[in-house]
Each structure stands twice: as C-alpha cells, then as structure tokens.
C-alpha cells in the first residue's frame, strides 16, 4: 500500500515536472504560431551576394518551412514597393512608426530577419535580403513630414519591366542590380513579398540556375584576328 502510494506520488511528481517544463513551451508555441519563418543567422559576409554567399543562402533555404514558402497572404503591390524608394535599388524608408525605446537599441532584425505576421500592423513582415547588416537605420529612415523643404526636379529611370523573357516561356532574367540583394528568396518568396514578383515555384531553391542577371552589354562578337 505504502509502496503503491509512493509509486503514485512519483508518477505524479514526474507528471508535474513535465507540466512545469512543457507549459511555457505550449504557451510559447501557441503565441508564436505564425508561419515558420526564415533563419538568416548563418550569413556573415558583408554586402552579401549570391556568388560569395551561395552556401549560406542554401542553408537558410533548407530551413524554411513549406508553409512559409507557399505563403501568399501578402498585401503589398509593386506600386507601393516603388513609392518607398527614390530610384530602383535605393534603400526604402520605414513606413511604420519606430519607437526609440529608452536607452535600448531598436532591433529591426527581430522582425525583418525572419518575417512573420505582425499583429500591430496587421501585415506579414517583409524580409531583408541583407540581414548581415545590423545598423539598419544607417540607410533606412522614418518619414514624419509630408511637405518638402524645397520642391525637387528629381527623376530616375523607370523601374524594370517585368516578364521580359528572351523566348516565350523562357525563364525571366534578373532585371535589377543584385548588390546587397543576392538572396532571391527574401523578396520573391513567402507571405511578406510583393505579389507581382512572387515566384510560382518556390520549392526550387537554386534560382540562378535558370535566372541570370540582365545587363546592357552589347551582343557577343568575335574579334577579328589578323591573318
């Protein structure tokens, strides 16, 4: 009798122990349910480009859940995307409020390295293609004023046109510069991306096997050799 009591007590104790350990985990998982996001911690080199960071990009790609890859809940349009930029490729401004918490650094990467749903803005967070850069507000600034100090005559070239394949049905070339934007999946895959430029086949990881940068180089012509 005494023995079985002790046994029961032991079982109960173990169960309680498991509860104590598991409860926060369960609660935590419940609250952080939203799509499995990207892990970008492996990327170290600065001003990352696919050519020098291919491995890190693959490792990160491997870690992304299927749910995230196929996520389509985006609210972003290409117009909105370009309206935050002064020219194609310029750092966009920050379109939401940034509190400067008292004496603490603002951690942009807490959301923008991995993506996911934000309750506060009711949106999926876009992901930075260069999470190796920590001093985010060196390039990305907020916008608190509408009126300009002086009007400007600024102009730039039109954003690249989409869908310009060399042959009907051929893979599209990469129409933009890839300096600091070498990680294709950051902007072209997942629920935080601009719908128009989201790829329809996110499960293929090696983007640049088919998509190559488009340049203005003249067509190849063999140099004529004397004799």
């Amino acid at each position: 009798m005494e023995k079985s009591d002790r046994k029961l007590g032991k079982v109960f104790l173990i169960f309680a122990g498991i509860c104590i350990v598991a409860l926060p985990l369960i609660v935590f998982t419940a609250f952080s349910f939203e799509p499995q996001e990207m892990e970008m911690t492996d990327v170290q080199a600065r001003n990352m480009d696919f050519d020098s960071n291919g491995k890190a990009i693959f490792v990160n790609y491997e870690r992304i859940s299927k749910d995230y890859l196929e996520g389509t809940s985006t609210a972003r349009t290409l117009d909105e995307y370009y309206s935050r930029r002064q020219y194609t490729g310029s750092p966009p401004f920050i379109p939401h409020k940034v509190e400067e918490p008292d004496l603490a650094a603002v951690d942009c990467l807490a959301c923008h390295a991995r993506g996911g749903w934000t309750e506060e803005l009711q949106k999926n967070t876009p992901i930075t293609p260069h999470p190796d850069q920590e001093s985010c507000r060196q390039c990305h600034v907020t916008s608190s004023e509408v009126k300009l100090f002086v009007e400007t005559n600024w102009m730039s070239v039109a954003p690249p046109r989409l869908g310009r394949a060399a042959l009907p049905g051929a893979p599209l070339p990469i129409p933009h510069d890839i300096q600091m934007r070498g990680n294709c999946i950051a902007c072209h895959v997942g629920p935080g991306t601009v719908a128009t430029i989201r790829v329809e086949h996110p499960s293929r990881g090696n983007c640049r096997q088919c998509h190559v940068p488009q340049t203005n180089a003249p067509l190849f012509e063999r140099e004529s050799k004397p004799g």
Partner: peptide, 26 residues
C-alpha cells in the same frame, strides 16, 4: 489585401502620395 494596405498606409501617413518618381526616358 491591396485595399487594406492602401488604407493602413493612408492612416499611418496621411498625405504621402504613392506615386513613384518621375521617369526619365532613356
């Protein structure tokens, strides 16, 4: 989603126009 994005952006930044820059043809 587009409508809600435009709406939330307008709430955050009244008056900011979402027209892109003036294009130069070249």
């Amino acid at each position: 989603a587009m409508q809600s994005a435009a709406a939330s952006a307008a709430v955050l930044f009244p008056g900011i126009s979402f027209g892109a820059w003036k294009n130069i043809d070249s």
